[in-house]
Design a protein around this nucleic acid. Sequence first.
DNA 1: ACCTGAACACCGTTCAAGT
DNA 2: ACCTGAACACCGTTCAAGT
Lengths: 260, 260
Amino acid sequence: MTPASSRPPDAREEAGDRRPLRTRHEQQEDRGMSPQTRRTGRTGRPPRLSQEAILTAAQRILDEEGPEHLSMRRLAQELSSTAMALYHHVRDKDELLLLLLERHAQRFPRLRLPAEPRDRLIAASQALHDILAECPWIVEVLASDDLMAVSALWIVENMIDAGIECGLSPEEAVYAYRVIWYYTAGELTIRVNRERHHAGLERPPHRDKAFAALTPEEFPRLAALAGQWDEITTRDTHHEGLVAIVDGLLSRTGAARKAT
Amino acid sequence: MTPASSRPPDAREEAGDRRPLRTRHEQQEDRGMSPQTRRTGRTGRPPRLSQEAILTAAQRILDEEGPEHLSMRRLAQELSSTAMALYHHVRDKDELLLLLLERHAQRFPRLRLPAEPRDRLIAASQALHDILAECPWIVEVLASDDLMAVSALWIVENMIDAGIECGLSPEEAVYAYRVIWYYTAGELTIRVNRERHHAGLERPPHRDKAFAALTPEEFPRLAALAGQWDEITTRDTHHEGLVAIVDGLLSRTGAARKAT
DNA sequence: ACCTGAACACCGTTCAAGT
DNA sequence: ACCTGAACACCGTTCAAGT
């Protein structure tokens, strides 16, 4: 979390962009002051809400009731306020989720990674996965981008650096990072959705339909595996898959020879 | 699309499951009759809507207005009907989306795949990706499951079969399939979200925040790449990544030696 | 400056009633 | 059997007004 030393000029007032307000939090951040420090100027009504309080309440809802219950209205209720009061501290729901992710990543301990580059690439990728596995509610937000939350940048940096030290060019290292990121995002999305549906106790109905279609003549392999499918499929193979992917990515350049 | 020869007993009337209705379409399917064939019994009011008409209208909305505009109400409007009329032909929105996927997969030509197993695994995986890349609106539904739509089962069958022919055990082949599927799902999800946001013309604001945090001292690799990031990141590396993953997965068993 | 209430423009789905 | 209208229980967000 470097305090942004050089920040690009605020482009929000440009034509077509109708979000004139900067949240209170952003203004404070610019002056490097906490609410307590600030003494200058006239004070309006003292704030009942704060971004911190909002985020804490949101996290509580997430933990106790699940992501599907986190709405601006529900959150306001939790704070004995109105939905609109929140918009004074947070631009919109997306920003709220992003801030929650940021908070989560900050709390996550900055692991010591192995020195050997292949191991480091694997360990960093695993850390990326683990951080997000703990806050799966945010998967949808993540999906929107490949450059991660600021607080998780150290992982991406390590992944790219390890890739380069393994003999990849910088471009190849970015591409390797992206392949791993896609795998991670896919695994998490599917895992989360499975758990969400599992919570509803119901097996998806089209699942049965698919199994019913598995005639041994047309689908010999799948028909043979149908009985064990759920069992095989339940095993957590994330790490195994990650290692295979990393080796596949590194072997393309003969970089693998450097490794263990 | 095998007509389901053995279908598990309908468990829907069990305790707690409150979906007594079977849609008209399902009933017909059971008797193996098309609407035209059916002559017996009293006919009630002739149907104005049909599943076919509903799916066609839904597809039109998807194509012309985008997935975010497909709602039951909008769809009913398109058919000059009411939202509730739809529920006579389709259980819920999820089923509607699943039927759309099924329809799409059916229309997709059943490719001739290479005989050589590694190439076949790659080609089948690519086909899976390509089918879904054309109907990205459904990514969210896909995410819920790893056993695909009935009409795409031939691809999964081929992937598993090719894996086994490459020397993997059946369990390993399923696991390989899942790794590839996670990669595919992740790639598609992120691609779709990017396009969806790109359509809104706005660069995500937290993107700038992340870049601003990229001090060369703390993040040397990322800082050096920042200028080219968008450019590198835009390149479509799906196929490259797929090949690397396949090779990584196969190399774990010495199966790679069999290949080309 | 900070917050509220009412309103806008939506969702998916249920239920009782109509023909 | 097929469809309708009204209603339920929600969304995120805007806007004008209050203190």
